[in-house]
């Protein structure tokens, strides 16, 4: 059954869950192009600290973002065990460095709980909600909020 059909029949959506540090996040599976192992990136001059550099993705130049650093956590130290989630954000493709991909979840919209009222505006800006699955808490990340397009245009 295609994703769309499934979505129609169950009213659910599929998410890819991954681990960054000791926290779990997920993104809409439709935004994910592929998942690949870590390869050393070419650093970019004058790049923000969370941009690790660029890699060659079959001929395309793909920027790699350390999601841990981007979300304000401890910068990752990439190893061969790290994976890169190649995701489409608006009309650009970005590689997200995460510790591991853990799961593919099928959830219904009503299972997504609103983001708890926390003090930090920063977390609220990219979290679209939280999921409680088997006693774990998984935060649904809105990629377009993590990489706002306007700022890139302004750059």
């Amino acid at each position: 059954m295609t994703y769309a059909a499934k979505n129609l029949t169950t009213g659910g959506r599929e998410l890819i869950a991954f681990r960054v540090g000791d926290q779990e996040f997920c993104v809409n599976i439709m935004a994910v192009r592929e998942i690949r192992g870590w390869t050393p990136a070419t650093p970019m001059p004058h790049a923000p600290s969370y941009v690790l550099g660029v890699i060659n993705l079959r001929g395309a130049v793909l920027p790699i973002v350390d999601l841990s650093a981007r979300l304000g956590m401890k910068p990752a130290e990439p190893t061969v065990r790290h994976v890169i989630i190649v995701a489409q954000v608006k009309n650009q493709v970005v590689g997200l460095l995460v510790d591991a991909v853990s799961d593919i979840l099928t959830v219904r919209d009503e299972e997504i709980q609103p983001t708890p009222d926390i003090s930090s505006e920063f977390e609220k800006s990219f979290a679209r909600g939280v999921l409680a699955i088997e006693g774990r808490m998984i935060c649904l990340v809105e990629l377009e909020a993590v990489f706002p397009h306007e700022e890139r245009e302004a750059a």
Binding site: T42, M44, N56
Partner: peptide, 26 residues
């Protein structure tokens, strides 16, 4: 190779390319 396609213009860098070892060079 365009850097702008997926990233943005980087001052001091005209573009990128891919070298024989498959890595990106600026």
């Amino acid at each position: 190779k365009s850097l702008e396609a997926n990233y943005t213009h980087v001052p001091g860098i005209a573009a990128a390319t891919i070298l024989g070892d498959g890595r990106v060079a600026l």
